[in-house]
């Protein structure tokens, strides 16, 4: 039996879709059978980020409504063994499916896959309710900004109300240089407010934009720091203990010297 994990955030633009694509790809690279579900009906883009847009024939709504068999709607990613995508419908809206239908869909997919990752739409309305309906676990993505953390807090509350307690947290797009200057919330502050377990921290990385535009998840890039962060996150999902990556940027000689004297070690996130 597989595990259904919903990836959600409340606020838009914090990286739910990127996170879903990358964790899914990393899990597939680790030899797992994975299906990604785009629950953002009407505003689909997981297919674009995965570079599978031109292969969509049937979508989630078709599968739910019985227009096609579920298997027909699944797109196999030829680049990664064991990775599938269930795309969202673009011409419909969130009311096209019900939470009960999503639950049934997840149950069916659980029998064939190790991991079912659901990319939730932003917001807390129908689309969010659909996305979490069939989930066993939840990952909350946030960025170190007050507004995103506030929304994440609300989402964690709503997840708890739907018996998805103890979600895991991913802090996305962290910029160490800004944290150092005191211009960005640090990880400790974020966790202190949200009070949930940290699954990983992903540094801000230009490569993400480049790879999203190309339709190639950044995890495939060995040298990308964000790719490494996503690989670590997927290893943690598989139950391995992986330390957080060192995101310190190159320091100047003076900074190194100062730290040496102040006795502070490099913080490891």
């Amino acid at each position: 039996m597989g595990e259904v994990i919903v990836i959600t955030s409340g606020k838009g633009g914090v990286g739910k879709t990127t996170t879903t694509a990358n964790i899914g790809t990393a899990l597939a690279l680790a030899g797992k059978k994975v299906v990604l579900i785009d629950a953002d009906i009407g505003l689909r883009n997981l297919d674009v980020v995965m570079g599978l847009e031109n292969r969509i024939v049937y979508d989630l709504v078709d599968a739910v409504e019985g227009v096609c068999r579920l298997k027909q709607a699944l797109i196999r990613d030829k680049r990664f063994e064991g990775l599938y995508l269930l795309p969202a419908a673009q011409t419909r809206d969130k009311n096209a499916v019900s939470p009960a239908q999503m639950q049934k869909l997840c149950e069916e997919l659980k029998e064939h896959f190790d991991f079912i990752l659901i990319d939730s739409p932003a917001g807390i309305e129908q689309g969010f309710k659909n996305a979490i309906a069939g989930a066993d676990k939840a990952i909350v993505v946030t960025v170190p900004e007050v507004s995103a953390v506030r929304d994440a807090d609300r989402i964690i509350g709503l997840l708890a109300a739907n018996e998805l307690i103890e979600p895991k947290l991913i802090v996305n797009r962290l910029r160490m240089d800004m944290v150092k200057r005191g211009d960005m919330m640090n990880i400790e502050d974020t966790i202190d407010i949200l009070g949930v377990d940290l699954l990983g921290v992903v540094p801000d990385d230009e490569n993400i934009i480049v790879s999203s535009n190309r339709g190639e998840p950044v995890v495939t890039e060995e040298r990308s720091l964000a790719g490494q962060a996503y690989r670590n996150i997927s290893q943690r999902l598989l139950g391995k203990e992986v330390p957080l990556i060192n995101m310190e940027t190159e320091d100047t000689f003076m900074e190194k010297l100062r730290r040496l004297f102040s006795g502070k070690n490099n913080k490891r996130y």
């Binding site: 506030r150 929304d151 807090d153 609300r154 964690i156 509350g157 709503l158 708890a160 407010i193 949200l194 009070g195």
Partner: peptide
């Protein structure tokens, strides 16, 4: 028991004790 998160509202006629945090919102 537990954290009162954004969007949650605890109401009671008498006294209230929160064993946890109350977050912004």
């Amino acid at each position: 028991r537990g954290t009162v998160r954004s969007g949650q509202r605890i109401f009671y006629e008498g006294n209230i004790v929160i064993i946890g945090d109350v977050n912004p919102g």
